[in-house]
Design a binder for these strands. Structure first.
Lengths: 261, 261
DNA sequence: GCTATCGGGG
DNA sequence: CCCCGATAGC
């Protein structure tokens, strides 16, 4: 027991540069210890670090052109930073790991999967297996591990607006559910579901359909998973819909967990 | 003498849709009888007429994809509207003529000319000749004719920030000065210069150089020319720099003339 | 710089 | 619907 309170958030920003004031304002207002972001869509040489220097956040990141990209912002300097998987394809712009306050943060942007029966879908299913392998080779389920990010999966029927028709969707497909379950069985707890059993708690609303946010036609794709010892210390977990009501919002919105360590 | 006061303005908006609130707010605040705009960059089926209906302005326009486009906004319905030249190439998105309160308004977006010795430069020089021909065949120098718009020429050395180095520029080239002079000799007066002899009175500042507006490194390219009888009735002519200080301003700013008819 | 368009991606 | 990047004109 060291009595440290820790606030950890995840946010798919859909371009860090396009959403820069949204992200920095959100950090200033919410003061999380850690913010993991996905889909930064910025190459490393263009990373807008200065904006975060100015608000006293440290950061580590890995990006590429146009697609993907992950970053961790934190008040304390991230330690033991690891980029991507151990083996090829390393997928560095999709997986970044760091230690902060003795907690291991695993920030992932899981491949979306395109269509069932596509090559990309196979790659996605395999990705969960590779992540399980990554956990197995580096950590113990008794460690303080937190796995966050856009996992591109709605785990349960209450996590999508139409659980019947969406069974054919790559983010709510039975095969993906099985793949996730295998990872969870390693020793992880869905921290949001521990604190909130309500249906219709979403973190993503598709731009391409009209009025999805207004009518709450969404998906819970952004998650905070923790090993049991860490989940036991969580005191709250919630979705902040405010950033999705901004002028030009991301299609995702942040999820936040609080811990008493 | 009918005692009518008339306020006529010209504004290259660099996309009417991108600048819509700037233009409508400017109309509401300044209440001109006529506003001629250039570079609307909007096709006719996308013209944002509703915004002008709401503030009780009538309008006529001709546009195309991406480039060019002219429009006239006025309190009274424009009459005897004519689009483009009589002969091909008609250049409809560059020339629109209408009668308002007995004054013939000729709103032009003169071709920029690219580089000296280019085909486009020849086309530009020729454009002034074709316009002179247009005046000759439709009007008399004794009529109330006003020729306004982005003429893509700074007439005098005091109309550019560097009259020596810019002599090679297509908007300050001796050949263009000659071409303009021929049109003016038909019977036109530079209404702005009649009222203001000051140097450094610009209506355009290039986006591509830094701090051109702050350092007043500009050009007077937007003009209000009038036949002598009409110019004699002008009471004021000035440039309004406020719209260029907006959030996302056009590179041009309005020129306004007032008449006592 | 600031438009706009187009094509690729989600 | 909204991102990016490329291209073209001024």
């Amino acid at each position: 027991m060291n009595g440290k309170k820790m606030k950890i958030a995840s946010f798919n920003v859909n371009s860090l540069r396009a959403r820069l004031p949204i992200v920095t304002n959100w950090l200033v207002e919410n003061q999380p210890d850690v913010l993991c972001v996905q889909e930064t869509k910025v190459q490393d040489h263009d990373f807008p670090g200065q904006a975060f220097d100015e608000i006293n956040y440290k950061y580590v990141f890995k990006g590429q052109k146009i697609y993907n990209g992950v970053a961790i912002f934190s008040k304390e300097k991230p330690e033991n930073v690891r980029y991507g998987f151990d083996k090829e394809p390393k997928d560095e712009p999709r997986l970044i790991t760091a230690q902060i306050h003795g907690v291991t943060i695993v920030n992932t942007y899981v491949p979306q999967g395109n269509m069932p029966e596509s090559e990309q879908f196979e790659y996605k299913l395999n990705w969960f297996d590779r992540l399980l392998n990554f956990f197995d080779s580096h950590f113990e389920p008794t460690d303080f591990i937190i796995w966050v990010g856009d996992l591109n999966i709605a785990p349960e029927p209450i996590d999508v607006y139409d659980p019947v028709s969406l069974l054919v969707h790559v983010c709510f497909h039975p095969d993906v559910h099985k793949a996730l379950q295998k990872v969870m069985n390693w020793g992880l707890v869905d921290v949001f579901r521990k604190h909130c059993k309500e249906a219709g708690q979403y973190s993503f609303w598709d731009y391409r359909m009209r009025n999805t946010f207004k009518n709450n036609l969404g998906w819970r794709l952004d998650h905070i998973m923790a090993t049991k010892p860490l989940a036991d210390k969580s005191s709250a977990c919630y979705i902040d819909k405010k950033p999705r009501q901004a002028e030009r919002p991301s299609d995702h919105t942040p999820v936040i967990a609080e811990f008493d360590l």
